[in-house]
């Protein structure tokens, strides 16, 4: 069955064939970990009393979980994420962060906007990290480090479904863990675009997984288990691009696109003679006649030098251009487009 990644407003719906590879389930279920609710070990809640146990657990931890759930704004789209350390480490999905070292905006539930940068990611299992770069102390949640989730456990999801909406807040959904596979958990908490990268919690409020994608049926909702994050923690903290697709593609050197034509200027630099329609350069505000002096702090004296610099950069990379316009120096910062 085709699965849809949940990146909001990304129309390049790559249909991902999920290889469901089941691990042998051990029989070591009998030992309940600390903090694990007994209701999880019942096939169905026994009447109203158990329903209230679930409700009380959820309402008890919701405020704390909600405070740590963030909206991640990247260009035109948005996803979700969750803060897991006081200094602002955020877990999200690889198809939300998209790449390593990209500047993004993180929004808290109350609308506070924070600067952040994407760290490493695991491209084949849809895991990624982001670091809030504005200094501060942030609300955060505990990670389930013990792989303690079991089939049938009650779980709840949070996320900024369809994008940030301050009046609505993030949306909470309750469900059960209905399938366990190697790199994927499936729950019946419904997800939609914008939820990607958001957190799945157990009833103790521990983070157990991150939202990744949905199936065609409402009940089929996929999450990346914490195990994937814990196994790849150092690499992701070290801003490594791990694994190969399908959730993120390695940047290809030379794929970056500026969208200008230039000629050598008499007194140094290169003069812009054309600005392409719908080009990144146009959007960044480059004008005809601007003289580009440096790109990423390297002097540009000819078209060839510009070409050489671009060869080392990829689509989506940030460039800083220093230009002279009407005798004044300006600095323009923007991302290269896709060639």
């Amino acid at each position: 069955m085709g699965r849809m990644p949940l990146g909001w407003r990304r129309f390049d719906v790559s249909v991902i064939r999920l290889i469901v590879c089941f691990c042998g389930l051990s029989a070591a279920v009998a030992i309940a970990a600390d903090g694990r609710l007994a209701v999880n070990d019942k096939l169905v809640p026994e009447g109203r009393k158990d329903l209230l146990v679930i409700q009380d657990a959820l309402t008890g931890v919701l405020a704390k979980c909600r405070a740590a759930t963030v909206c991640i704004e990247i260009g035109e789209g948005s996803g979700s994420g969750v803060i897991v350390s006081k200094d602002g480490l955020v877990l999200t999905a690889a198809h939300v962060s998209g790449r390593v070292g990209k500047k993004v905006k993180v929004k808290l539930e109350d609308g506070t906007e924070l600067a952040a940068v994407t760290l490493g990611l695991v491209a084949d299992s849809d895991a990624a990290m982001i670091r809030i770069t504005d200094e501060g102390e942030y609300p955060f949640v505990e990670i389930d480090r013990d792989d303690s989730l079991r089939l049938g456990d009650w779980v709840f999801s949070l996320g900024h479904s369809g994008g940030f909406d301050e009046k609505r807040g993030s949306v909470v959904r309750l469900g059960r863990l209905v399938r366990i596979a190697n790199a994927t958990l499936q729950s019946d908490c419904t997800l939609i675009g914008g939820d990607s990268g958001g957190p799945l919690f157990d009833l103790s409020g521990r983070l157990v997984a991150i939202h990744s994608r949905v199936g065609q049926q409402l009940q089929v909702n996929m999450h990346v288990p914490m195990k994937i994050y814990l196994d790849n923690w150092e690499g992701m903290m070290g801003s490594e691009f791990l694994g190969e697709g399908p959730f993120a593609q390695k940047p290809v050197k030379g794929s970056g696109y500026l969208g200008i034509a230039t000629e050598a200027a008499e007194d140094g630099g290169i003069r812009v003679t054309k600005v392409g329609r719908n080009s990144p350069a146009l959007e960044a505000g480059i004008k005809l006649g601007d003289v580009i002096l440096t790109m990423n702090e390297t002097a540009v004296r000819s078209r060839d030098e510009l070409r050489e610099l671009l060869k080392e950069l990829a689509a989506g990379d940030e460039v800083v251009l220093e230009v002279r316009r009407d005798g004044e120096l300006k600095t323009l910062t923007f991302e290269l487009g896709e060639r």
Binding site: L25, A27, L151, Q186, Q219
Partner: peptide, 13 residues
Amino acid sequence: VMGQRSLESAYRT
């Protein structure tokens, strides 16, 4: 759990 890889539909939410 042992007999199946996924929760029977009757026990889903």
